[in-house]
């Protein structure tokens, strides 16, 4: 075992020794040991620090804004915490913004509509993505990578550009319309733009890879002999799919569905570009509150409520993942 180190291993060992002997490194690692910070704490700590800085702190700021009052000026809200006569800290919490969300049916409808659109889009993605992922997973190894690349290829173009492209494809002068007109199937061009259908097309198109990839990863791992065993015990292929493949791919279905559902709920660009004035989604309401109404407190309350709405599925996702790890242990 001793003689196994090749030249590269020897080089690495030498490099490591050199770094250890290097003054600043020694000083830094000694100081960190004094504070009780080892290598492991550092590796776990950095992402947590990142999340603290760029997720928790902004969240607290938005939460604080959601509790304040509107005012004209810069910033467009009253401070929540302020010094009164330089002696007392005055905290003015205004829950009216949240109450407003419940009072005005616009917000409730926007939330419900967002969830409906996201749920239907997720289901459509699953119906299209499952056969696609299954097909790719069962293709020979030489073709598989090419097919996967094709699934991921749209990511190489800007998301915004791809949504804009759909405006051309769904409009009155689209190639589809021209084809259908020339074939005589329709006599009036159909425009899908500014309809819910266009929003669904846009979301399903944009988020399909997020469904296909986790499903593929799951289906590709599946042991084919399980299906042979099922067939051997008298199970027909369709039934084998329903009793073996489908339950075993559940973690992939859940992962893919959440990856589509969560961003789709808050989607802003697609309904704004493809949807009509009545396709109300919470992302659009949020935008309008912030930039058109300049009502930052209500907009922040909308954002916080949306976050809470999404935390539930995220927790469920975590739970499902933990369970999956348990099964495959």
């Amino acid at each position: 075992m001793v003689a196994q180190g090749g030249p590269s291993t020897l080089f690495l060992a030498g490099l490591r020794g050199w770094i250890r002997a290097f003054g600043p490194y020694r000083w830094a690692s000694d100081r960190m040991k004094d504070w009780g910070i080892g290598g492991r704490t550092l590796v776990i700590g950095i992402p947590y620090l990142w999340l603290l800085l760029f997720f928790l702190v902004p969240f607290i700021i938005v939460f604080k804004i959601s509790l304040s009052d509107v005012r004209l000026g810069m910033p467009p809200y009253e401070p929540v915490i302020q010094w009164v006569d330089s002696q007392v800290i005055g905290i003015r919490m205004n829950l009216a913004n949240y109450a407003f969300l419940f009072e005005d049916p616009l917000y409730r409808n926007a939330y419900l509509n967002s969830i409906k659109v996201a749920a239907i889009s997720t289901l459509l993605c699953l119906l299209i993505g499952y056969p696609l992922a299954y097909g790719i997973a069962r293709t020979g190894a030489s073709w598989r990578n090419l097919l996967l690349l094709l699934v991921m290829l749209p990511f190489w173009t800007s998301f915004l550009l791809r949504v804009y492209a759909w405006i051309g494809l769904l409009g009155r002068n689209s190639p589809f319309n021209q084809l259908l007109l020339s074939l005589g199937i329709i006599d009036q061009p159909i425009s899908l733009l500014q309809t819910d259908i266009a929003v669904y097309i846009g979301i399903v198109y944009s988020y399909l890879p997020f469904m296909v990839l986790p499903l593929y990863a799951n289906l590709e791992k599946m042991d084919i002999t399980l299906l042979e065993a099922a067939a051997d015990l008298g199970c027909r292929p369709t039934k084998a799919f329903l009793t073996i493949t489908l339950p075993l791919s559940m973690p992939g279905i859940i992962a893919g569905s959440l990856l589509v559902f969560i961003p789709a709920v808050g989607e802003f660009v697609i309904p704004a570009l493809l949807g009509g004035p009545d396709s109300l989604m919470i992302g659009r309401v949020l935008w309008e509150e912030f930039f058109n109404n300049r009502d930052w407190p209500v907009a922040s309350a909308v954002a916080i409520a949306m976050l809470l709405l999404l935390v539930v599925p995220i927790m469920w996702f975590q739970y499902a993942q933990a369970r999956q790890v348990g099964v495959h242990r």
């Binding site: 042991d223 002999t225 399980l226 042979e228 065993a229 099922a230 067939a231 051997d232 015990l233 008298g234 199970c235 027909r236 073996i244 339950p247 075993l248 099964v327 495959h328």
Partner: peptide, 27 residues
């Protein structure tokens, strides 16, 4: 295979991981 009067014991056993021992045997 599903119409043959034959059963097979697989080298890898190919037990259904999402089923209990009882459900596996009853399959």
């Amino acid at each position: 295979p599903y119409e043959r009067p034959v059963n097979m014991m697989f080298q890898s056993y190919a037990l259904f991981p999402h089923m209990t021992v009882e459900q596996n045997v009853a399959f």
